[in-house]
Amino acid sequence: MADMHSVSHASATFVEQKFVQMLKQPLQSSGRLTYVAPDRLQKETLAPARSELIVNGDHLTVQQPDGKLRDISLSEFPELGALVESIRATLAGDAATLSRYYTPTLAGTADDWSLQLEPRDPRLRKLLALVRIHGDGTSIRAVETVDQDGDRTEMTITPDPE
């Protein structure tokens, strides 16, 4: 995972499936992910509705489906901050930030690894059970988050061809 330091720019498409118990069927969305080292992450959802999330440093902007821009402080929604960092810090190979939010467990080989993250903050643990990230080499292939109530989100990532 330390190799992640070498990644300065990455872009990929993603497909995300949310299994929410309140809903009769899973919610599916898809879009693009762009990462620019060291701390800019952009998640652009294209379907079913356009929305955008940009994290730049500590600044987080969400463009909601209704087009409204929202500036969010990560402490207002620590859950969101933790989720963002799980991906961003992994991409940046920033073990320090990761360990601030989570207890990480790395398994597998360099070509097929999986990183399991358990939230440290008790407040966050009330909501989020764990985050599981799969990857090969310096690419992230899948991110799975499991909420405490059993709801799940699965994001499958396909890196753009170089």
Binding site: L27, Q64, D66, L80
Partner: peptide
């Protein structure tokens, strides 16, 4: 409908507990 969109978005995890 807006709630569904919200749940599907990145804000979903935040909005979820209060929707019911």
């Amino acid at each position: 409908q807006a709630d569904v969109q919200l749940l599907g978005s990145d804000m979903g995890v935040v909005a979820k507990p209060s929707i019911p």
